[in-house]
Amino acid sequence: MASDSGSSSGFLLELDDIRAGYGRAALVLRGLTVRVPAGAIVCLVGPNGAGKSTVLKVASGLLTPRSGRILVDGEDVTGRGPQRMLAAGVAHVLQGHSVFREMTVAENVLLGGYTLRDKALVAERAAFVRDLFPVVAQRWTSLAGLLSGGQQKQVEFARSLMVGPRVVLLDEPSMGLDPRATGVVFEQIVRMRDAGTAVLLVEQNARRALEAADTGCVLDLGRVHVSGPAEELLADSRLGELYLGVRP
């Protein structure tokens, strides 16, 4: 996991020995450690209930861990709320469709940069995301609710990039999409990575996600069961049978 990050550890985002759960219920994450290098896609796969979405909630500050540390570029940000995590460079694209349906694509995207005061910077970022996601540029003045599921997902990606995050957390980006739309969405995730943003991806469509990712982590019972280069995980027939679904 080589990295060009400025931190001494070489990772942009580190979740170190995280234990977390909801309320007084049993722990969902039990000593989980995940590291995301700069400019890479790290994919979390695993069965339902493994704690994949909970990892993203902890990373974005929506859920405070009971123990463990969260580091962004080497800085300890454990316990910070969502807005401060956003300021630290961690953007979270939630599961399902979360566009503002009655607002235009332009308004949706510009809302992503709402905390930015510099108008020139907002215009620069808007131009960048319009260039990165052509469908966003094409549908700029359309109501977001009129877009298809795949297009809405790209608007969400564009919105998340407006604050110039160093890491984007994507929760089930292919949920509810047909295979063709899923293909376009994964192409856009790779383009985000190629544009310099690290991605921590949670996905049920494990095989498709690992094909796009650089590193894969297989979660089970709240901790990382296996991790390594994504292509190696894909080639492991035993893992394939257990977690990825055997190819027909």
Binding site: Q83, E102, M103, E107, Y114, T115
Partner: peptide
């Protein structure tokens, strides 16, 4: 006004965007 309209659409989501 854009911030207000985001509140109308989804207040929690608007808050998560820093409004």
């Amino acid at each position: 006004g854009m911030g207000l309209k985001a509140i109308r659409e989804d207040e929690d989501k608007a808050q998560s965007l820093g409004i």
